[in-house]
Each structure stands twice: as C-alpha cells, then as structure tokens.
C-alpha cells in the first residue's frame, strides 16, 4: 500500500541512449567493440592483403610491411586477424540468435500453457541440461565431417545445449507476470494467448533478452575457440580460435613467435570483456535497483 514502487516503465530512446552513454562500463565496452568492428569491416579496405597468400617470408616478427608479422606458413597475421574477428563475431551473433530463439520458444510456451505442457518441456530442458556439451559437439561435428561443417553448424552445435538456462529464466519470469492484473484485463478483452504473449509479455522480457543475447554471443565466440583448439572446425575458415589453433600446432610458443598467439589472444580477451561490460551496463541502466544516481 505504501511501499515504494519499483517498476518498469517505457523510456524514450533518447533517455536510454543518454543513460547508456553516461555509463562508464558501457563507454569502455562500446569503445572496444566499435574499434574491433571498424577493424573487421574497414580492415580489408585499408589493408588490402590476402590472408591466404602464403608467398610472404614465414615467421617474420612485426615490421612496417607486416604490422602483426607473418606465421609459419607465410600468411600475414594482421590480415588473418581482420578476417578472424569478422568470423568470430558471426559465430557469436548466430549462437546468440539460436540460443535466444530456442530458449524463448520453450520458455514462453511452458510459462503460458502451464500444466502438462509445462511439465514435459521443463523435464526435457532438465535432460538437455545434463548432456555434456563438448561430447555432443564432438559427436555431431565428426558425424557431419569437420571439413564440411560451416560456422553455422558450429553455432548450432553450441546453441543446442546452452539454451536451457535461458528457457528456465524466461519461464520463471512469465510465471510471475502471468498473475499481473494487466494480463487479466487483456484476457478479459478477449485477447488470445499468442496476442498476450507478443503484446504484453515480450516487452517485459526485452531487456533480459538483450542482455542474454550479448552474453550468449560471448558463449558462442569462446565456445568456437574451444572447438577450434580441439580441431573440430574447418581449417579453411579463419576465426580467432583458428589462429590460436594454428599457433598451437606450429609450436609458435616454443619458437618464441609471440605475435601469432598473443595478438589474436589479446583481441579475443578484449572482445569478451567488452561484451561482458556492455551486458552489465545494460542491466545497470534498465534495472533501477542497480542504477546509481
């Protein structure tokens, strides 16, 4: 009756952007990702070197001609990194999208339908949760054939086990929203469940979906690195993970060729950190309890 109301309210886009760009975490995160995006998309224009060209002298340290040096096969590391960022981000975005789509569908249906549907879907979710994800990835990728699997398959393999947590969270949120008065009023206006899901429920989940998407992008990028290092992705597609894989199999560490693994590694860490920062910042801005005045 007299308790303070902490409530979601619609904010104007300009208000949101203002809040976001006043958040230190967001500025740092956004700065890093912006820089990497520029590198990925403008790189080939500014630095027109073929990453698959093996005619350069091998194992050159960074120089004016090759800013990040060359690897054991004589490929230009800077050009490789530019392509790698692009492909890694692609895997990230795909994994984020797949995970959100599967998790959202399962969570929404379970939460709205309730009853037996809910119980079946949640049992299924729990079963998927205990499947060892690396094992499943190895099985699927070797079954399809490592060289025939594109980045899309890698993202799909990663998503197939990661959606469970998201689905459960969505279901829990729906359960708490379902008993709210405005849902009753929409129902009593003759709205169907689907209409209520899209008009009344989804907007409430928007922030959570956005934050989860950024986090699952991170899972995708790092998951791909893991699979690459295990040698489960095609060697003809350059990603940041693949660069680390190449550095590992050419024993770059042993030969002191630090530029072939430290540079992609650093970029990977920066990418991961910036995504984490962005996710935290969004949470802070949208969640009034975390917002600092």
């Amino acid at each position: 009756m007299v308790t303070e109301r902490l409530e979601v309210r619609s904010m104007k886009l300009i208000e949101l952007l203002y809040l976001l760009f006043n958040n230190k975490r967001f500025i740092i995160g956004f700065g890093i990702i912006f820089f990497e995006l520029i590198l990925a998309f403008m790189g080939p224009l500014l630095y027109p070197v073929d990453p698959f060209d093996t005619n350069n002298p091998p194992s050159l340290p960074p120089s004016e001609e090759h800013p990040f040096g060359t690897d054991r096969f004589g490929k230009d590391v800077f050009a490789l990194v530019v392509y790698g960022i692009r492909n890694s981000l692609y895997v990230g975005v795909l994994t984020g999208t797949f995970t959100i789509l599967i998790g959202l569908t399962v969570g929404l249906v379970a939460g709205i339908r309730g009853g037996i549907v809910d119980e079946v879907l949640m049992s299924f979710t729990n079963v998927v949760m205990i499947i060892p994800n690396v094992l499943l990835a190895i099985l699927i990728l070797t079954y399809v054939g490592v060289e025939r699997s594109g980045l899309e398959l890698v993202a799909a393999v990663l998503s197939i086990t990661t959606w469970t947590g998201f689905a459960r969270a969505v279901r829990a949120q729906i359960l708490s929203l379902r008993e709210r008065e405005f849902i009753y009023l929409s129902r009593m206006a003759g709205f169907s469940s689907i209409k209520i899901a899209f008009q009344d429920l989804l907007p409430h989940l928007a922030t959570f979906i956005l934050i989860s998407f950024v986090n699952y992008m991170n899972v995708g990028i790092n998951g791909e690195v893991g699979l690459s290092i295990l040698g489960l992705t095609s060697i003809s597609i350059v990603t940041l993970g693949k660069l680390l894989y190449f550095a590992a199999i050419t024993q770059a560490f042993l030969f002191g060729q630090w530029w072939t693994f430290l540079i992609p590694g650093a970029i990977l860490i920066l990418l991961s950190a910036s995504l984490l920062l962005i996710a935290t910042a969004i949470d802070e801005v949208f969640n009034p309890r975390l917002r600092r005045m």
Binding site: K12, E15, L19, M293
Partner: peptide, 14 residues
Amino acid sequence: LKNVSAYYRQLIVN
C-alpha cells in the same frame, strides 16, 4: 527537528 529539508536527487531525461 529545526527547519530540516531533505531532497531526493532525480534524473529526468538528462
């Protein structure tokens, strides 16, 4: 209490 004032600082748009 003598002539006390306490205000909340609030952010409206910017």
